[in-house]
């Protein structure tokens, strides 16, 4: 189904298929020894649960981060969702539909995790729709050809997994558990994306060109998914240091980016695709792949709202929400009527 006949299934293709995922999953619950104190729990690498007392800043940081993650899942349905009706084969159509559906499920799961922190989904959606909360900038790039669905699976899901595997060890229990489940599914998405490109790169000349073009366009934005540099000077700055101390963040952006490049560059070679970076080469001394300068001007520009699809993504989401308002109102009215009817019958 996922092309395992041509791709060695024992060869890990993404971070969720590596030992670090298995490690992150293995959580040892020692709360009975540690007690319920927030600082003691954090120090002992234990999970904070919704009922626990927690600093307000911890709560707010998590609300912002988990909500942004949930929004990314929901907005992330759009770039591939608009290919469902155009998928080139029925098998691809089925896989793509299931994938976009998975993303909707991830969104719901993460909204639920956010709700455990005392905020409801309707409020979170409002914040997405009015721009006060963000989603991953990667989804502000367009999907121009069928191959983009392959590149998104391979690179975007791949980078997302690299970011999310450490979050399986996040100190906040509901988020950690959500990530354990989500990473498993993202891992399928990443394999499916790789397989789309694998087939294209062994196809007709037009298909090979399509695959190369998609890799060219998605490579740099995928590297930007790890966020701005935060090693050296930047690492001592506010958010990163605090999130590290709270066990929300485990690795620096640059560490994760390097891991991603190390994992992905050899995969590009297997695919026969050239990544659009003349400086990309194996550095024997470092034991890592070197890569070129990321265009951080572009990163900040897209983050500020001036990317190819920023306006379109939010407008699409808002339209669907507004067009559905009467349906949600009807469901509430119906539920209320029938609850009353049940009460008066009782």
């Amino acid at each position: 189904m996922y092309g395992n006949d041509v791709i060695d299934p024992n060869d890990p293709l993404n971070a969720a298929e590596t030992e670090s995922y298995d490690q992150a999953r293995r959580h040892e619950d020692r709360r009975h020894e540690v007690g319920d104190d927030f600082d003691a729990l954090i120090a002992a690498d234990q999970r904070i649960e919704p009922r626990d007392a927690m600093p307000d800043k911890y709560r707010q940081t998590l609300i912002r981060q988990i909500a942004q993650h949930a929004h990314s899942e929901i907005i992330g349905m759009q770039p591939e969702g608009n290919w469902i009706t155009r998928a080139p084969s029925l098998r691809r159509k089925a896989i793509l539909t299931a994938k976009v559906q998975d993303e909707a499920g991830h969104g719901l799961y993460l909204y639920s995790a956010t709700e455990t922190l005392g905020i409801d989904r309707a409020e979170l959606l409002d914040r997405l729709h009015n721009g006060t909360q963000k989603y991953s900038s990667i989804f502000n790039y367009p999907t121009l050809t069928w191959a983009d669905n392959g590149a998104i699976g391979w690179l975007v899901d791949g980078a997302a997994i690299m970011n999310q595997v450490p979050l399986c060890r996040c100190s906040y229990g509901p988020y950690a558990r959500a990530m354990i489940r989500v990473c498993k599914e993202e891992s399928f998405h990443q394999r499916q994306g790789f397989e789309i490109l694998w087939v294209l790169s062994r196809g007709t000349e037009a298909q090979r060109a399509m695959a190369q073009d998609a890799a060219n366009r998605w490579w740099w934005p995928a590297l930007m998914m790890f966020g701005p540099p935060d090693t050296g000077e930047a690492a001592t700055g506010g958010h990163t240091a605090q999130s590290m101390a709270w066990g929300i963040k485990r690795f620096s952006n640059d560490d994760l980016r390097q891991k991603f490049v190390d994992m992905t560059a050899p995969q590009a070679q297997k695919l026969g695709l050239t990544l659009p970076d003349p400086e990309l080469r194996w550095n024997e001394e470092r034991g890592h792949w070197d890569f070129g300068q990321i265009d951080w001007d572009e990163f900040w520009r897209v983050l500020r709202g001036d990317g190819p699809c920023n306006a379109e993504r939010v407008a699409h989401r808002r339209r669907a929400h507004e067009e559905g308002a009467w349906v949600r109102e009807a469901a509430n009215a119906y539920a209320a009527k029938h609850a009353e009817a049940r009460e008066s019958a009782a």
Binding site: M77, G81, E323, G324
Partner: peptide
Amino acid sequence: MTNAPQIE
């Protein structure tokens, strides 16, 4: 897909 009244 992406056009429904709610995510469910």
